[in-house]
Simulated assay, not measured.
Amino acid sequence: MENSSKKSSRGKPDQRDVFHAIPRVPSGDGPYVQAKHAQLVQKDPVAAIVLFWKAINAGDRVDSALKDMAVVMKQLDRAEEAIEAIKSFRCRCSKQAQESLDNVLIDLYKKCGMVDEQIDLLRQKLRLIYNGEAFNGKPTKIARSHGKKFQVSIKQETSRILGNLGWAYMQKTNYMAAEVVYRKAQMIDPDANKACNLCICLIKQARYEEARSVLEDVLQGRVPGSDVSKSRTRAEELLMDLNPPHGLSSVAELGLDLEDQFVDGLDELGSRWAHLRQRRLPIFEEISNVKDQLAC
Protein backbone atom coordinates (compact mmCIF):
# COMPACT_ATOMS: atom_id res chain seq x y z
CA MET A 1 0.00 0.00 0.00
CA GLU A 2 1.39 3.39 -0.99
CA ASN A 3 2.09 5.76 1.87
CA SER A 4 0.37 8.93 0.63
CA SER A 5 1.41 10.91 3.72
CA LYS A 6 5.07 10.78 2.67
CA LYS A 7 4.70 11.85 -0.94
CA SER A 8 2.96 14.69 -2.65
CA SER A 9 1.16 14.48 -5.98
CA ARG A 10 4.47 15.32 -7.64
CA GLY A 11 6.19 12.38 -5.99
CA LYS A 12 8.19 14.50 -3.54
CA PRO A 13 7.99 14.29 0.25
CA ASP A 14 5.37 16.61 1.71
CA GLN A 15 7.65 17.59 4.58
CA ARG A 16 10.23 18.79 2.12
CA ASP A 17 7.62 20.88 0.33
CA VAL A 18 6.73 22.51 3.63
CA PHE A 19 10.34 23.60 4.17
CA HIS A 20 10.47 25.03 0.65
CA ALA A 21 7.44 27.17 1.53
CA ILE A 22 9.26 29.00 4.35
CA PRO A 23 12.44 30.46 2.83
CA ARG A 24 14.98 32.36 4.89
CA VAL A 25 13.54 31.42 8.26
CA PRO A 26 16.45 30.52 10.58
CA SER A 27 16.47 27.23 12.45
CA GLY A 28 15.81 26.92 16.18
CA ASP A 29 12.97 27.56 18.58
CA GLY A 30 14.01 30.78 20.33
CA PRO A 31 11.97 34.00 20.28
CA TYR A 32 13.90 35.43 17.33
CA VAL A 33 13.11 32.41 15.14
CA GLN A 34 9.49 32.59 16.27
CA ALA A 35 9.43 36.27 15.32
CA LYS A 36 10.80 35.57 11.85
CA HIS A 37 8.23 32.81 11.41
CA ALA A 38 5.44 35.21 12.38
CA GLN A 39 6.83 37.85 10.03
CA LEU A 40 7.57 35.74 6.95
CA VAL A 41 5.27 32.71 7.18
CA GLN A 42 2.26 33.74 9.22
CA LYS A 43 2.37 37.29 7.79
CA ASP A 44 1.47 38.66 11.22
CA PRO A 45 3.65 41.76 11.75
CA VAL A 46 2.05 42.68 15.09
CA ALA A 47 2.85 39.27 16.56
CA ALA A 48 6.34 39.50 15.04
CA ILE A 49 7.03 42.79 16.83
CA VAL A 50 6.00 41.29 20.17
CA LEU A 51 8.34 38.34 19.60
CA PHE A 52 11.19 40.60 18.44
CA TRP A 53 10.83 42.52 21.72
CA LYS A 54 10.97 39.22 23.55
CA ALA A 55 14.13 38.25 21.67
CA ILE A 56 15.82 41.57 22.51
CA ASN A 57 14.97 41.25 26.20
CA ALA A 58 16.18 37.64 26.21
CA GLY A 59 19.45 38.51 24.44
CA ASP A 60 18.52 36.27 21.49
CA ARG A 61 20.25 37.53 18.29
CA VAL A 62 19.78 41.11 19.43
CA ASP A 63 21.56 42.61 16.41
CA SER A 64 19.10 41.08 13.96
CA ALA A 65 16.08 41.31 16.23
CA LEU A 66 16.36 45.07 16.72
CA LYS A 67 16.96 45.80 13.05
CA ASP A 68 14.18 43.48 11.83
CA MET A 69 11.73 44.84 14.40
CA ALA A 70 12.42 48.41 13.28
CA VAL A 71 11.79 47.44 9.65
CA VAL A 72 8.46 45.81 10.53
CA MET A 73 7.46 48.85 12.62
CA LYS A 74 8.17 51.09 9.66
CA GLN A 75 5.88 48.96 7.50
CA LEU A 76 3.12 49.48 10.10
CA ASP A 77 3.65 53.27 10.12
CA ARG A 78 5.21 53.08 13.57
CA ALA A 79 8.45 54.70 12.43
CA GLU A 80 8.77 57.06 15.40
CA GLU A 81 8.47 54.12 17.77
CA ALA A 82 11.13 52.28 15.77
CA ILE A 83 13.49 55.25 16.06
CA GLU A 84 13.14 55.28 19.84
CA ALA A 85 13.66 51.51 19.99
CA ILE A 86 16.93 51.72 18.05
CA LYS A 87 18.21 54.62 20.14
CA SER A 88 17.32 52.83 23.38
CA PHE A 89 18.63 49.34 22.59
CA ARG A 90 21.47 49.74 20.10
CA CYS A 91 23.85 49.74 23.07
CA ARG A 92 23.08 46.03 23.40
CA CYS A 93 24.17 45.38 19.82
CA SER A 94 27.64 44.53 18.57
CA LYS A 95 29.97 47.05 17.01
CA GLN A 96 29.54 45.32 13.65
CA ALA A 97 25.77 45.96 13.76
CA GLN A 98 25.99 49.73 14.31
CA GLU A 99 26.46 50.62 10.65
CA SER A 100 23.37 48.69 9.51
CA LEU A 101 21.36 50.21 12.36
CA ASP A 102 22.42 53.66 11.16
CA ASN A 103 21.14 52.79 7.68
CA VAL A 104 17.79 51.74 9.13
CA LEU A 105 17.66 54.97 11.16
CA ILE A 106 18.24 57.05 8.03
CA ASP A 107 15.27 55.36 6.33
CA LEU A 108 13.15 55.96 9.42
CA TYR A 109 14.13 59.62 9.54
CA LYS A 110 13.05 59.91 5.89
CA LYS A 111 9.73 58.28 6.72
CA CYS A 112 9.13 60.74 9.56
CA GLY A 113 10.32 63.81 7.67
CA MET A 114 13.12 64.33 10.20
CA VAL A 115 15.50 65.94 7.74
CA ASP A 116 17.86 67.58 10.24
CA GLU A 117 18.38 64.29 12.06
CA GLN A 118 18.97 62.57 8.74
CA ILE A 119 21.60 65.16 7.77
CA ASP A 120 23.41 64.83 11.11
CA LEU A 121 23.60 61.05 10.82
CA LEU A 122 24.75 61.12 7.19
CA ARG A 123 27.53 63.57 8.06
CA GLN A 124 28.51 61.35 10.96
CA LYS A 125 28.81 58.41 8.55
CA LEU A 126 31.01 60.54 6.29
CA ARG A 127 33.27 61.30 9.26
CA LEU A 128 33.75 57.57 9.82
CA ILE A 129 34.70 57.08 6.17
CA TYR A 130 37.02 60.09 6.27
CA ASN A 131 38.79 58.72 9.32
CA GLY A 132 39.11 55.25 7.82
CA GLU A 133 36.79 53.73 10.42
CA ALA A 134 33.99 52.56 8.10
CA PHE A 135 33.79 48.94 6.92
CA ASN A 136 35.99 48.07 9.92
CA GLY A 137 38.91 49.65 8.06
CA LYS A 138 38.46 47.48 4.94
CA PRO A 139 38.10 48.81 1.37
CA THR A 140 34.96 46.74 0.67
CA LYS A 141 32.13 45.04 2.53
CA ILE A 142 29.49 42.41 1.79
CA ALA A 143 26.00 43.90 1.60
CA ARG A 144 22.58 42.29 1.22
CA SER A 145 19.57 43.37 -0.81
CA HIS A 146 16.45 41.31 -1.42
CA GLY A 147 18.21 38.19 -0.19
CA LYS A 148 21.23 38.62 -2.46
CA LYS A 149 24.81 39.32 -1.42
CA PHE A 150 27.09 41.73 -3.25
CA GLN A 151 30.28 43.67 -2.62
CA VAL A 152 30.26 47.41 -1.97
CA SER A 153 33.43 49.49 -2.22
CA ILE A 154 34.20 52.44 0.03
CA LYS A 155 33.94 54.70 -3.03
CA GLN A 156 30.44 53.45 -3.80
CA GLU A 157 29.38 53.84 -0.17
CA THR A 158 30.75 57.38 -0.01
CA SER A 159 28.92 58.36 -3.17
CA ARG A 160 25.70 56.75 -1.90
CA ILE A 161 25.86 58.65 1.39
CA LEU A 162 26.63 61.92 -0.38
CA GLY A 163 23.65 61.29 -2.69
CA ASN A 164 21.37 60.83 0.33
CA LEU A 165 22.82 63.94 1.93
CA GLY A 166 22.27 65.96 -1.23
CA TRP A 167 18.66 64.81 -1.39
CA ALA A 168 18.15 65.77 2.26
CA TYR A 169 19.42 69.30 1.56
CA MET A 170 17.06 69.51 -1.40
CA GLN A 171 14.16 68.75 0.95
CA LYS A 172 15.24 71.80 2.96
CA THR A 173 15.40 73.80 -0.31
CA ASN A 174 19.07 74.43 0.43
CA TYR A 175 20.08 73.97 -3.19
CA MET A 176 23.53 75.51 -2.83
CA ALA A 177 24.52 72.95 -0.20
CA ALA A 178 22.89 70.16 -2.23
CA GLU A 179 24.90 71.20 -5.29
CA VAL A 180 28.15 71.05 -3.31
CA VAL A 181 27.34 67.54 -2.11
CA TYR A 182 26.25 66.22 -5.51
CA ARG A 183 29.39 67.58 -7.15
CA LYS A 184 31.51 65.78 -4.56
CA ALA A 185 29.54 62.58 -5.19
CA GLN A 186 30.07 62.86 -8.95
CA MET A 187 33.80 63.34 -8.48
CA ILE A 188 33.99 60.07 -6.57
CA ASP A 189 31.57 57.80 -8.46
CA PRO A 190 29.63 59.43 -11.34
CA ASP A 191 25.98 58.47 -11.58
CA ALA A 192 23.25 59.60 -14.00
CA ASN A 193 20.53 59.85 -11.36
CA LYS A 194 22.68 62.06 -9.14
CA ALA A 195 23.54 64.12 -12.22
CA CYS A 196 19.82 64.79 -12.73
CA ASN A 197 19.50 65.87 -9.09
CA LEU A 198 22.50 68.16 -9.56
CA CYS A 199 20.71 69.63 -12.57
CA ILE A 200 17.66 70.42 -10.42
CA CYS A 201 19.91 72.23 -7.94
CA LEU A 202 21.35 74.32 -10.76
CA ILE A 203 17.91 75.11 -12.19
CA LYS A 204 16.73 76.25 -8.76
CA GLN A 205 19.70 78.64 -8.72
CA ALA A 206 18.83 79.93 -12.23
CA ARG A 207 22.08 78.52 -13.64
CA TYR A 208 20.41 77.16 -16.74
CA GLU A 209 23.40 76.77 -19.06
CA GLU A 210 25.28 74.72 -16.45
CA ALA A 211 22.18 72.59 -15.97
CA ARG A 212 21.89 72.06 -19.73
CA SER A 213 25.52 70.92 -19.89
CA VAL A 214 24.93 68.37 -17.12
CA LEU A 215 21.83 67.02 -18.89
CA GLU A 216 23.65 66.73 -22.21
CA ASP A 217 26.27 64.54 -20.53
CA VAL A 218 23.49 62.23 -19.31
CA LEU A 219 21.72 62.15 -22.70
CA GLN A 220 24.99 61.48 -24.54
CA GLY A 221 25.72 58.52 -22.26
CA ARG A 222 28.79 60.12 -20.74
CA VAL A 223 27.54 59.47 -17.21
CA PRO A 224 27.00 55.84 -16.05
CA GLY A 225 23.88 54.77 -14.20
CA SER A 226 22.11 51.70 -12.84
CA ASP A 227 18.97 52.48 -14.89
CA VAL A 228 20.11 54.25 -18.05
CA SER A 229 16.71 54.42 -19.75
CA LYS A 230 15.03 55.89 -16.66
CA SER A 231 17.80 58.48 -16.26
CA ARG A 232 17.55 59.47 -19.93
CA THR A 233 13.79 59.91 -19.63
CA ARG A 234 14.24 62.05 -16.55
CA ALA A 235 16.95 64.11 -18.26
CA GLU A 236 14.69 64.70 -21.27
CA GLU A 237 11.89 65.91 -18.99
CA LEU A 238 14.25 68.27 -17.18
CA LEU A 239 15.56 69.59 -20.48
CA MET A 240 12.03 70.64 -21.41
CA ASP A 241 11.82 72.69 -18.21
CA LEU A 242 15.01 74.65 -18.83
CA ASN A 243 13.39 77.79 -20.21
CA PRO A 244 14.16 80.37 -17.52
CA PRO A 245 11.15 82.06 -15.91
CA HIS A 246 10.78 85.80 -16.51
CA GLY A 247 12.46 88.07 -14.00
CA LEU A 248 14.71 85.40 -12.51
CA SER A 249 18.25 85.29 -13.76
CA SER A 250 20.77 85.20 -10.94
CA VAL A 251 21.70 83.31 -7.82
CA ALA A 252 21.53 86.53 -5.80
CA GLU A 253 17.86 86.97 -6.72
CA LEU A 254 17.13 83.56 -5.23
CA GLY A 255 18.54 84.59 -1.86
CA LEU A 256 21.19 81.85 -1.85
CA ASP A 257 24.48 82.27 -0.07
CA LEU A 258 27.68 80.34 -0.76
CA GLU A 259 28.58 80.71 2.91
CA ASP A 260 25.74 78.41 4.00
CA GLN A 261 25.82 76.12 7.00
CA PHE A 262 27.01 73.11 5.07
CA VAL A 263 30.01 74.80 3.47
CA ASP A 264 30.87 76.25 6.86
CA GLY A 265 30.56 72.76 8.26
CA LEU A 266 33.01 71.44 5.67
CA ASP A 267 35.56 74.00 6.81
CA GLU A 268 35.03 72.98 10.42
CA LEU A 269 35.42 69.32 9.63
CA GLY A 270 38.52 70.06 7.59
CA SER A 271 40.23 71.73 10.54
CA ARG A 272 39.18 68.97 12.94
CA TRP A 273 40.49 66.25 10.61
CA ALA A 274 43.73 68.02 9.62
CA HIS A 275 45.85 65.95 12.00
CA LEU A 276 44.43 62.76 10.48
CA ARG A 277 45.42 63.64 6.91
CA GLN A 278 47.86 60.74 6.67
CA ARG A 279 45.09 58.30 7.60
CA ARG A 280 42.57 59.62 5.13
CA LEU A 281 41.34 57.37 2.36
CA PRO A 282 42.69 58.13 -1.14
CA ILE A 283 39.27 59.14 -2.45
CA PHE A 284 39.26 62.20 -0.19
CA GLU A 285 42.62 63.28 -1.53
CA GLU A 286 40.97 63.41 -4.98
CA ILE A 287 38.41 66.00 -3.85
CA SER A 288 39.55 69.59 -4.40
CA ASN A 289 38.36 72.54 -2.36
CA VAL A 290 34.67 72.95 -3.09
CA LYS A 291 34.56 76.71 -2.64
CA ASP A 292 37.42 77.27 -5.10
CA GLN A 293 35.73 74.98 -7.60
CA LEU A 294 32.39 76.81 -7.37
CA ALA A 295 34.08 80.18 -7.59
CA CYS A 296 35.66 79.30 -10.96
Rank of each mutant, 00 (worst) to 15 (best):
P31R: 11
P190Q: 07
K138T: 04
K54C: 01
R207T: 00
R272G: 03
I200M: 09
A168G: 07
K194I: 13
A55K: 06
S249W: 08
S4F: 08
D260I: 07
K149C: 06
R222N: 13
C199I: 06
D264A: 08
I119N: 01
V181Q: 09
I200R: 04
Y32Q: 07
D191F: 01
H37V: 14
K87D: 14
R279V: 05
K204V: 00
V18M: 12
R160L: 07
E81F: 08
V46Y: 11
R272P: 01
M170H: 04
A35V: 08
Q39A: 12
A168T: 09
R92A: 09
V263Y: 06
V115L: 07
A195L: 04
S250L: 05
D77S: 15
K110M: 08
E2N: 14
K6R: 15
L76D: 11
M73S: 06
M176W: 09
E179D: 13
V180S: 11
I188R: 03
K110C: 06
K7E: 14
L40W: 13
R92Y: 12
N103W: 02
K141I: 07
E81M: 15
A97H: 12
L219K: 13
S288D: 10
E133R: 13
V115N: 04
E81H: 11
V62G: 02
Q171V: 07
N174W: 02
A97V: 10
Q98T: 06
K291D: 01
D227N: 13
L239F: 11
R78Y: 06
D260Y: 07
N243A: 11
R277S: 13
Q205H: 04
E84P: 00
P224R: 05
I86T: 03
L248V: 14
V218M: 06
W53N: 12
W273Y: 08
K291I: 06
K141S: 10
L269R: 09
S9L: 14
Q15N: 10
C201K: 00
H275D: 15
C201Y: 02
E209A: 11
K6G: 01
V71W: 11
G11E: 12
A211V: 09
L126A: 09
C91L: 12
W53S: 11
D29G: 15
M114Y: 12
S5Q: 14
D217P: 00
A58G: 03
V180N: 03
E237G: 03
G265M: 05
S64T: 05
E157V: 02
L108N: 03
I119Q: 00
D116K: 05
R90V: 00
N243Q: 14
R207H: 01
P244A: 12
V71H: 11
L40S: 08
H246A: 12
R160V: 02
G265F: 10
V33N: 01
Q151H: 03
L248A: 11
K43A: 09
A252W: 08
L266Y: 05
C112K: 11
E2H: 15
A274H: 12
F262M: 05
G270F: 05
M176Q: 04
S213C: 04
